[in-house]
């Protein structure tokens, strides 16, 4: 990996830097080589910390705009998208050159979004009770779907056929069929559902409720609740949720509990509680599933979790109030 220097922010250099990668492409949809970087939004310092996965060091900090929160990676690795909440836009960041390529308007106060395998962005518009689908290449709005109050978490099934939107203040999980953009089920869950994820074949959804302090396991085709994990820790305010690459374990960011919960997918028993920094919200997993990175918002750090040892093996200082995390590996 190349070290990031300030000259990469200059236009001419960036183009030159890109040229070899472009030559390797034989089709329009060729994937960019992974940068092996972690991207972290810092909500209060209006920037993105860029971390080298090999050294666990911050190698660059990119100014992105006011109050960055949600972050995601284009399926082909060509872009990192950042929801710039107080600018009502999505910023498109080049993971190689670290230049902000453009920003497009995406409705009021964008917070969380998910990227569909076809590249489209599914975003919740918290103040309008809407979910919107955008084509990030053109910035064009493709579709709007009416959902409950304060929509927040968005997830898309690996096959791209279903999406989840959580409505925080209506306590609902909406299941959408794609490409019809129709709601097929509305599932009432515990208070303030914040985030969701699918299992590998897309048949099951797992959703966290922050105030209800629980995880619900839901059959995607019917919206039927098939399991329930109450988090006994009275400090637990769960947010992000991930499933292990082999599908046997769930990882839940515990918020004020300052730990990541490891839950058995079948028995739904809490197997481990991994202490991390304060107010842990964001989670990202590397490609082979050996590491999880958590944003510890009130500790201004990212924790690196070894999933075999079930412990944090490093803490990386980042900006003020780290929120979201995306990985390009």
């Amino acid at each position: 990996m190349r070290p990031v220097k300030s000259h990469h922010f200059m236009k001419g250099t960036a183009v030159k830097f890109f040229a070899p990668a472009l030559l390797l492409c034989v089709a329009a949809n060729c994937a960019a080589a992974p940068t092996n970087r972690l991207f972290v939004t810092n909500e209060n310092s209006d920037n993105v910390s860029v971390i080298d996965l090999a050294t666990n060091k911050v190698t660059a900090t990119v100014d992105i705009g006011k109050r960055p929160r949600g972050i995601g990676r284009a399926p082909d690795g060509s872009a990192i998208y950042v929801a710039v909440s107080n600018e009502n836009s999505i910023a498109v960041l080049d993971p190689q050159s670290l230049k902000v390529l453009r920003k497009f308007h995406c409705g009021e106060d964008p917070e969380t979004f998910a990227v569909h395998p076809n590249g489209n962005i599914y975003i919740s518009n918290e103040n309008d009770a809407m979910a919107s689908i955008y084509d990030p290449a053109t910035g064009k709005l493709i579709q709007e779907v009416k959902v409950g109050n304060e929509p927040e978490g968005v997830a898309i099934s690996p096959d791209g056929k279903r999406a989840i939107v959580t409505s925080e203040s209506s306590n609902l999980i909406h299941i959408l069929a794609i490409p019809e953009y129709k709601i097929t089920a509305n599932v009432l869950v515990g208070a303030r559902p914040r985030a969701a994820t699918f299992n590998r074949d897309g048949s099951i959804v797992y959703a966290t409720s922050e105030i209800g302090a629980e995880v619900k396991k839901i059959e995607a085709s019917t919206g039927k609740i098939i399991g329930h994990v109450p988090l006994a820790d009275d400090k637990a305010k769960p947010k992000d949720i991930l499933i292990s690459r082999d599908g046997t374990k769930l990882y839940v960011a515990g918020g004020r509990a300052n730990r990541v919960f490891v839950i058995d997918e079948k028995s739904l028993a809490v197997l481990h509680e991994i202490p991390v920094g304060k107010r842990v919200w964001g989670l990202a997993m590397n490609r082979d599933g050996s590491r999880i990175y958590s944003t510890d918002g009130a500790s201004n750090q990212v924790s690196v979790i070894d999933t075999k040892e079930n412990k944090a093996i490093a803490q990386i200082p980042v900006g003020d109030a780290p929120w979201g995390v995306a990985i390009d590996d």
Partner: peptide, 10 residues
């Protein structure tokens, strides 16, 4: 109003 909004879905 918010209860009605939720009720529409349920």
């Amino acid at each position: 109003a918010e209860a009605k909004q939720q009720g529409e879905f349920l």
